[in-house]
Amino acid sequence: MTMNIESVTLTYERAKGDPVTAIRDIDLEVRRGEFVSLIGPSGCGKSTLLHCMGGMLRPSSGRITVDGEPITGPKPSRAAFVFQDYSLFPWRSVVDNAATGLRFAGVRKAERRAVAMKQLELVGLDHVAESYPAELSGGMQQRVAVARALAMDPQIMLMDEPFGALDEQSRRRIGIEMSNVLTEAEKTVVMVTHSLDEAIFWADRVLVMGKGPGRIVREFVVDAPRPRRLDFMTTASFDTLRAELFGLLEGAPEEVVAP
């Protein structure tokens, strides 16, 4: 599986004022099994790019293909989303939430619940399968959202600041857990994030985007095998990369070391 993004531009028409170009001339290739993180300042269009990859937004020009086949609309078996605000259906139990996409695809009840249960086991939530989302913590809800995406067995997972709403500690813990799950499942993942640590720790490649209009300014390769252990964050190569990213994002000279 290879996703090709060729000179994609997206311009929004606005009711008042001039149209806004959210992203311009993006070229990118995502290969099978790869983990790519997208990082950049607010409003740089990283989330827009992700939504284009999933077919939720149509580019104004350029094209996106998966193995040569153009993307025209959302198709969860090809690209499944994990949204920032989880957006579980509060009226469905956890296991039925994980099975949502399968239900839409017309899979029989027993079968889709079996698949969903397997994914819940993977993210360590099979014990709350019959609970409702309101009874779960934010971190657990997001793991259900990951299971919901995994249940589609997608060729590519698209994660939009998946842990942005969590506190720092659970974010790191769940992040590492999910990172292991995704690596073991050999999933291809594109993740949008605000966190430098997350961007580096998870990814094979970090793409830094810039603003006005959104474009890719730099690409870094994180040269360490996945899954990684937590102490990867204390290595010199991690530090160097982090400092470099920090400088780039904050527009400061590169010798300034991150706090």
């Binding site: 999933g54 939720m56 949204f83 259906f89 239900r103 919901r148």
Partner: peptide, 24 residues
Amino acid sequence: RHLKVADAFGARTVHRYADVILPA
């Protein structure tokens, strides 16, 4: 946001009504 999830996970119109609009 729930309608967005429905779209992202391939819901058809009947699903939009039966699975999102009606329960909400």
